[in-house]
Amino acid sequence: MMSRIIALTGYLLRNVVLSVAGVLYILSIIPMLIWFFPFGQRTPELSYFITLIAIYGAILIFLVTLTIAGRANQAASYALIVRLPSRVEYLVAVLLAAIVFATAIQTGLAVIVLLQPAGPEASFGRLLEIPPLWLSINIFMAVLALHATDFVMSNWSRVIVFGLLTILLFTQSVNARTLSWFSTRLSIMAQFFARQGMLGLTQFFNNASGWVTDSGGGFFSQVIGFIFWPFRAMSDAVKTGSFDSAQALAPAIVLLYATILFMIASDLFANKDLHFVE
């Protein structure tokens, strides 16, 4: 199985590296160096270096995954896919190719910045903290990007995954004002049902309105805070310069999210009709 995946990964990597998009991705290092790490100007802090290149890597791998999945989604792949014992091997190859290509560019940028005379100073111990952090984010973003592609999408899956993500991000930013607006809407609905004489629904919406006002904020912030905790923990650890024992688990939890998303992606891909682009 591994030899097949490696062969397909190599094929997809070559496909993207030799394309215009691939060259543009490699060249994206140059504006990063010019704008964020100008030669001769001292990089202020290691945390700045880690955070900025992590964000660059996350955006890059999202785009690279879209590109590679787009190229994998072509009719030239039919004959190859039929030969595989499981279609998921092809999906793994797409993911691996995206991770290898994007992480190589990200690492290239990091090495160039570190080797600059005025680059950030980092002990060997601190440098060792970087790979799990960047890699876990990269893998998560690559798997998330897979769900955005026609390659994996099946029926309404893209809308569901990204809709859910939007709701989570929206709910995370819920504040007292939003809760008050939401509570008012629930009250209006309760009044509407009261006018219709539907006492059961009136009671329900009145209770919901009261709950949102009294404890909704706390509940939402706890639930959403729990889901987004690993990202906040990693960000905090980078800022403070060290990981405590709980924060050290954050990359593993991000990988767990990536695993769940990948399991959904592989299930969608394994059971969908393949209509590759001709």
């Binding site: 070559r14 496909n15 072509q74 009719a75 030239a76 039919y78 004959a79 039929v82 030969r83 001709e278």
Partner: peptide, 13 residues
Amino acid sequence: IAYKPDRLHFPSQ
């Protein structure tokens, strides 16, 4: 199974 599709596409490069 080995499959030859009716419309032939190969990795052009």
